[in-house]
Design a protein around this nucleic acid. Structure first.
Length: 621
DNA sequence: GCCGTTTTCGGCCCGACTGTTTTCAGTCG
């Protein structure tokens, strides 16, 4: 495998975590230096990129830092470990010798000298300012140079006093926009969970289909790629006359304010705070526009670059052969010979690729896979034959075992596992040992009255602080399936947490490690733990790792799923349902699984009943 | 700063909209 392919294959997707301005400065110099986590390294590199941009550095150099941040976001391994083991960081996508040197320095010293140097010239707070809507590097620099604005607080003062109007390029509209932008940031308006976006998008799409003369309507963007969180919504429409469609859009009752509207593009903010962009495109460009607005940005850049290599110009208007000898400035959006654009496939075919499912479009190796006809045959909801984590009224579920079984049978499943909590999870009504046998009797009764589905005796066994399990072996041995997870002491250090999970995974009765990082999207950060080590241990022990389909968890993340697949682990996609309705959340797990390149064969609950039973006995010979 | 089937220099995706402008820079996606 060439280095290029290797690097591309590792190229990640998701954006880095939010970068805080002045992260390095705040850490201070006292105390022993501590190894930086990947996200902290990414944060420092982002700050460096922001500040270099303000300094007017070469934009491609700035991009190089941002690309490195993207790569880091897709790693499951800790950079500190990689450095400690003497690995060659330049093997990582977007990492050259400089980036490798920077990262090594940060790992070894906890600081980045280059950032210190830049801080001498540009205040750290400016990085934060560039993240406000309407303020980019140029305008931030201007405010700093003319009014000495260094922080958001400074900016607010100039807004109040009106001094900002003295600065060239800043008028009343800018004042209003910046005020809103600061207020939005205060509210900590973040990304929307996919499930919440679904609730907002469905009625909007229904409404838009009623627009006069609308021919086609599709939701593109990260929503179409089914990312676990959504920044904004991109709607794509085809119609002959844009005017009525755009007016219909901005008149949607859910709109809080109209940010802008032109002949082909309009932007509104819904009352929920969700931004929605509508693009109106001609029929002949529909496929090219759909591809373009679906993204990801990184994927698009990669595809367009392939186009450039073939003398093609790819944009939302279509695929064009660039006229020989044409000057860049003479080219309009539709100059040259149009060789495609009505269908999405046109774009891929023009650069020698098979059509790539949206969930894979993260420039994480999908381009190479499509070139080599090695795209995965992605799992679908129809592949699922059972659900291996759900709760009943015996602990914190809302429905009885029988009700859960009937609902699962109605979904066409062959088997389910009832996984009520164990005693340590008192708040969730964890069962006491004395209750467990009674519950088994009820499972037996439910099994008799609900035909056609097998109900496994299981429990979601709590992993205690020391890594031991919250249920005696005599019970564990009598369960059909043992699922383990953490519900307490979530703030242990990385080493202790990793050891705790490893101990649980190595318990001979354990089958599935459930919601491994404990994250709750937008609510709780993942545990500090070494995922790479945990996944490796699970693989070694024959333990499956769960992709929890609950839309607030989706834990494993897509990046972790991708890595698990690379390592050859088995995955269980479970809903963790606490009611019959929750069983339908399986689709969110499937979305995430597809983003992690899973095929049916990677997932244990796609197995037919008999083969699944066989899997259960793999360690119980 | 990274990268290479136009390779070690010279590229690096492409277009719309806004605001404050008189012809476009900056920002955003």
């Amino acid at each position: 495998m060439s280095k290029r392919t290797t690097k591309r294959a590792r190229k990640p997707s998701a954006g880095g975590r939010g970068a805080g301005a002045g992260a390095q400065g705040r850490r201070g110099s006292k105390r022993a230096k501590r190894t930086l986590e990947n996200f902290e390294i990414a944060r420092l590199l982002t700050e460096l990129a922001d500040l270099l941009e303000i300094q007017g550095a070469n934009p491609f150099r700035v991009r190089a830092y941002r690309n490195a941040v993207l790569t880091i976001a897709g790693l499951t391994r800790s950079l500190a470990d990689m450095v400690a083991q003497g690995e060659d960081l330049t093997e990582l996508a977007g990492f050259g010798s400089e980036m490798a040197r920077h990262v090594t320095e940060m790992v070894q010293t906890g600081r980045l000298q280059m950032l210190d140097e830049v801080h001498k010239e540009v205040p750290a707070g400016l990085a934060e300012l560039t993240r406000l809507d309407g303020l980019g590097p140029k305008r931030t620099k201007k405010l700093w140079e003319t009014l000495g604005v260094k922080t958001i607080a400074d900016l607010e003062r100039t807004l109040e006093t009106g001094r900002i109007l003295e600065v060239e390029g800043f008028g009343e509209k800018s004042v209003e926009r910046l005020r809103r932008s600061i207020a939005d940031q205060r509210k900590h308006v973040g990304r929307f969970r996919l499930v919440d976006a679904d609730q907002l998008v469905r009625p909007l799409v229904d409404y838009m289909r009623g627009a006069e003369g609308i021919e086609k309507l599709e939701v593109a963007g990260s929503y179409r790629r089914r990312r676990d969180t959504i920044g904004d919504i991109d709607l794509l429409a085809v119609c002959d006359d844009a005017g009525p469609v755009m007016r219909h859009f901005t008149a949607y009752p859910g709109v809080a304010r109209v940010q802008g509207s032109g002949g082909t593009r309009g932007t509104v903010i819904l009352k929920s705070g969700l931004q929605v962009d509508l693009r109106i495109v001609p029929r002949r460009a529909y496929g090219a526009a759909l591809h373009y607005f679906t993204g990801s940005k990184e994927h698009n850049i990669a595809v367009r670059t392939l186009g450039v290599q073939r003398g093609l110009r790819i944009s939302e208007y279509g695929v064009f052969r660039v006229p020989k000898g044409a000057k860049e400035e003479d080219l309009g959006p539709e100059s040259g010979e149009r060789i495609g654009g009505a269908r999405e496939e046109d774009v891929f075919r023009a650069v020698g690729l098979k059509w790539i499912p949206p969930e894979l479009r993260e420039n994480r190796g999908e381009i190479e896979a499509a070139q080599n006809d090695r795209l995965p045959d992605l799992i679908t909801l129809e592949d699922i034959r059972g659900d291996l984590q759900m709760h009943s009224t015996w602990s914190d579920g809302k429905n009885t075992i029988e009700e859960m079984a009937r609902a699962a049978a109605a979904l066409g499943y062959e088997y389910i596992a009832i996984t009520d909590h164990t005693p340590a999870v008192g708040v969730a009504g964890g069962l006491k040992p004395g209750d467990i046998e009674e519950q088994w009797e009820e499972i037996g009764r439910a099994q008799q009255v609900v035909p056609g589905i097998t109900i496994f005796r299981s429990m979601e066994v709590d992993i205690l602080r020391d890594g031991s399990l919250d249920l005696a072996d005599e019970y564990l041995e009598r369960l059909d399936l043992v699922v383990v997870s953490i519900h307490s002491h979530m703030h242990l250090g990385k080493r202790e947490m990793t050891e705790r999970i490893l101990k649980a995974v190595r318990h001979p009765q354990v089958d599935i490690l459930s919601h491994p990082t404990g994250r709750r999207i937008n609510e709780r950060e993942p545990f500090e733990m070494d995922m790479e080590v945990v996944l490796a241990a699970a693989h070694e022990q024959g333990v499956a790792v769960e992709l929890n389909a609950h839309p607030e968890r989706l834990d494993l993340s897509d990046v972790h799923v991708f890595r698990a697949r690379e390592l050859g682990l088995k995955i269980a996609i479970d809903t963790d349902a606490h009611s019959v309705d929750n069983l339908r959340n399986m689709s969110y797990g499937i979305d995430q699984a597809r983003r992690g390149w899973l095929e049916a064969g990677h997932v244990i609950n796609t197995l037919p009943l008999q083969r699944f039973r066989k899997w259960l006995t793999r360690r119980r010979k």
